[in-house]
C-alpha cells in the first residue's frame, strides 16, 4: 500500500455541491479494481487532520488519470473543492477491497443501485462489467434534479433508471421503488449508498446474490483504529472493519 502525490487536472462542480476532481500521477497505475477508495488529505493537515475516504469513480489508465466525485458538505470537503488545477493532493491507496466478480457472475445480468454520493463507484464498476460482456442496468437515486449527475455517462454502459425523492426527474421515490420489475431477471446486485438504503435494497433482493459497499466515518482507513466497524454474524470476531475488510461485502454478510 502506498501514499501518492497526485496532480489535479480539473476540479469542477457538476451538480449542487457535487464536485468532480480528476487527478493524475504514476500512482494511478495501481487503481484497477472498482469499489476501492482513496484516503484523501483535504489540504491543511494541521487544522483538518483526518483524510476523507472517497471512492474511485473512474480510472483512465492510458492517461494515468483517476476521477473522484465528492459532495462538498463539511469544512474538509469544502476545502478540497477550492483546490485548483495543478495543485497537489496527498492520497493513500487504493484502499479496501473492491467488487470481486465471481466466475458464476459472468453469465448473469447485473443490477447496479446507487444512492446520492454512493453513485460514483458504480460508474467504474459498470465500465468493467460491460467490458466483460455483462448486461448492466443502473438504478440511480438522487434527492432532486439539481443533485443528479453523470446520468448521460451511465447510459453508455447500460439502461439507466433514475429516481428522485421529489419527483423532479425520473421516478418519484427511492431506488427501491424502481427495483420491482428488474429483479425478476434474477440479476446480481451491486449497491452503494447509506446503510438505510442498502438495508432496503437487501430486503427487496431476497434470494438474489449481490454485493454492498458501505459508508462510514473513518480514522486511519487501513484497519488499525477500529473506527469504522460494522457488526456481522458470519465471522467469529463478530465485526468487520469497513475500510480494510470492505468497503464491499457480500449481501447478507453484515448487519445493517
Amino acid at each position: 500500500m502506498k501514499k501518492h502525490l497526485l496532480n489535479i487536472t480539473s476540479n469542477i462542480e457538476i451538480a449542487r455541491n457535487i464536485f468532480e476532481m480528476k487527478l493524475t500521477g504514476p500512482g494511478v497505475g495501481s487503481m484497477t479494481t472498482p469499489g476501492q477508495f482513496l484516503h484523501v488529505s483535504v489540504g491543511n493537515q494541521s487544522s483538518k487532520l483526518l483524510r476523507r475516504p472517497l471512492s474511485i469513480c473512474d480510472v483512465d489508465q492510458e492517461r494515468k488519470e483517476v476521477t473522484l466525485l465528492y459532495r462538498a458538505q463539511g469544512e474538509g470537503t469544502k476545502q478540497l473543492s477550492h483546490k485548483s488545477a495543478e495543485e497537489v493532493v496527498d492520497v493513500l491507496g487504493p484502499l479496501g477491497n473492491g467488487f470481486e466478480l465471481a466466475e458464476n457472475d459472468h453469465n448473469r445480468k447485473a443490477l447496479l443501485i446507487g444512492g446520492g454520493i454512493g453513485v460514483p463507484p458504480l460508474y467504474y464498476l459498470g465500465k468493467h462489467l460491460k467490458k466483460k460482456g455483462i448486461e448492466v442496468t443502473f438504478i440511480l437515486g438522487y434527492q432532486s434534479i439539481e443533485d443528479s449527475f453523470y446520468i448521460e455517462k451511465f447510459k453508455d454502459f447500460g439502461e439507466t433508471i433514475v429516481t428522485t425523492v421529489d419527483g423532479s426527474l425520473g421516478i418519484k421515490g427511492f431506488v427501491t421503488d424502481a427495483m420491482k420489475n428488474v429483479v425478476e431477471d434474477e440479476p446480481v446486485i451491486y449497491s452503494v449508498g447509506p446503510a438505510i438504503m442498502l438495508k432496503a435494497v437487501e430486503e427487496r433482493a431476497i434470494g438474489l446474490r449481490g454485493y454492498l459497499s458501505l459508508e462510514e466515518r473513518m480514522g486511519c482507513g487501513i484497519g488499525a483504529c477500529f473506527a469504522c466497524v460494522c457488526p456481522t454474524e458470519t465471522r467469529e470476531s463478530g465485526y468487520v472493519k469497513i475500510c480494510s475488510d470492505g468497503p464491499v461485502f457480500k449481501m447478507g454478510e453484515v448487519v445493517l
Partner: peptide, 11 residues
C-alpha cells in the same frame, strides 16, 4: 458507530 469525529487540529 460513529466512533470518530474531526475537530479543529484534532479528533
Amino acid at each position: 458507530t460513529p466512533r470518530v469525529a474531526e475537530t479543529e487540529s484534532g479528533m
